[in-house]
Design a protein around this nucleic acid. Structure first.
Lengths: 154, 154
DNA sequence: TTGATTTCTTAATGTAGATGAATGTGCTAT
DNA sequence: ATAGCACATTCATCTACATTAAGAAATCAA
């Protein structure tokens, strides 16, 4: 069990032999940085979630992982990991990714925002909005106006 | 081993107890249809590829699967399947999906088109362009103009 | 072959969301 | 307290891509 301070980077893009991270308390996220320096958040991992860069062994990883809050994390070597490398877990993970791809292909920013709220019901208060924007693939400004419209529809 | 005629639908959205399909010859695809009746292609599966709607058992599936060419397919029950449900295969699949999500979040239509050509090097001649457009998440018209620009840059 | 469908292209117009800049609102740290 | 900084909001402008429409080309069916 390891402690990570808010802001600490746990894994860098390009690292090899990456681990599997079980979040016991706190909040992690995984993300990439594109050639323009822009961050794109791949997933959030609050308490009870698992993060890992799922990759064939020995390939350099694509994702950064950092702590958005002070966190308690169980760090497990992929080979030693019996849970993550468990078929039904992996299949569930695939089905989540499948759903996200279909969202990105077919849904508007507003729908993707709703989808975010569904997927992570209680973390929208814990992270800056710009990160929500990054997760759903729009700018913070666009998210801001979108939320206004949503609020004024009531 | 089963034969499917071009155009034949192999699996419907909402089906349960879906199978794993090993494509020996021909070409399959998986896709959804959204509430506006628009198709969104999730993946193509030429010879040597595998298609399946990866889902927790007993949940209704999200994807249609059909044959884009006359095809020879090995159809395997998920429980009986030792290859698809093999960790390293599943992890490789996850890494492909991960890459696709990052593409969709961060790349322009042109870049996504290049990515399609990379991922499926030899099938762009075998399918209508509107399907490529659907895979990369743009309209056929946009793809048409994008290809013009690309061609005239040489 | 021929017509009928489907697909592709081109062009005009519309729009969601990006970009950039200005302003406001916290925090955090001295 | 106040300076500094990250974050949020608003607004004006811009742009990538959607939409609509209409004609050309390719494919299919009889």
């Amino acid at each position: 069990m390891k402690k990570f301070k808010k802001g600490e980077i746990i894994q860098y893009q390009g690292d090899v032999n990456t681990k599997v991270y079980y979040v016991e308390a706190g909040l992690l996220r995984s993300y990439t940085i594109d050639e323009n320096g822009k961050e794109h958040i791949f997933m959030f991992a609050p308490e009870g979630w698992i993060v890992a860069d799922s990759l064939p062994p020995d390939s350099p990883c694509e994702l950064f992982i950092d702590a958005l809050e002070d966190s308690m994390v169980k760090v497990v070597e992929k080979e030693d990991d019996t849970i993550e490398h468990n078929e039904s877990k992996l299949i569930k993970r695939i089905s989540v990714l499948q759903k996200r791809i279909i969202m990105l292909l077919s849904s508007s920013a507003t729908e993707r925002y709703e989808y975010f709220l569904d997927t992570y019901p209680n973390i929208s208060q814990r992270i800056p909005q710009k990160m929500i924007a990054s997760f759903i693939g729009i700018t913070p400004q666009a998210l801001s106006t979108l939320r206004n419209e949503k609020a004024s529809r009531n």
